[in-house]
Design a protein around this nucleic acid. Structure first.
Length: 109
DNA sequence: ATTCTTACA
DNA sequence: TGTAAGGA
C-alpha cells in the first residue's frame, strides 16, 4: 500500500462523514433542528414509521438516518401525501440507495 | 433540565 | 395535533 496525502476537500468530507456517523440525539434536539414537533415524532414512532436506535435506552435516540427520514417524510407530507404513503416512499428510496452501495461493496470484495 | 406516557380539548 | 399533568 502506498501512502497518499489527503487534499483539503478530502479532509472536509472525512470530517463530515465522521460527524454524521457519530450523531446520536434526543427527541428535543431532533425537533429543534428539523422543525418537526416532538408530538409528531413520537406519533410516528408509535406507528412504527420511525424506529429510534437503542431500544434499551429510557429515552428515544435518533441517528443520522432517522433524522434524514424525518426530514424527508415531513417534506412529502407538505407536498400533500398521506403519512403512510410518505413513509413508504422514503423507505423505498432509502432501501434503493442502500442497495446501490451494497452492490458497490460487493464489487469491492 | 429533558423526556416519557396518558389524556383531553 | 397542541398542551398539560405527574412521574422518571
Amino acid at each position: 500500500m502506498e501512502e497518499k496525502s489527503l487534499s483539503t476537500a478530502d479532509v472536509n468530507i472525512l470530517m463530515d462523514v465522521d460527524f454524521l456517523v457519530s450523531v446520536i440525539v434526543a427527541i428535543g434536539e431532533v425537533a429543534n433542528i428539523t422543525g418537526v414537533p416532538q408530538r409528531k415524532i413520537r406519533y410516528w414512532d408509535e406507528k412504527g414509521i420511525i424506529e429510534p436506535v437503542d431500544k434499551t435506552s429510557t429515552y428515544r435516540q435518533y441517528d443520522y438516518l432517522n433524522i434524514k427520514k424525518i426530514v424527508l417524510i415531513q417534506e412529502l407530507l407538505d407536498e400533500g401525501y398521506t403519512l403512510d404513503v410518505s413513509a413508504k416512499k422514503v423507505n423505498e428510496r432509502c432501501i434503493k440507495v442502500a442497495e446501490v452501495f451494497e452492490r458497490l461493496k460487493a464489487s469491492k470484495s
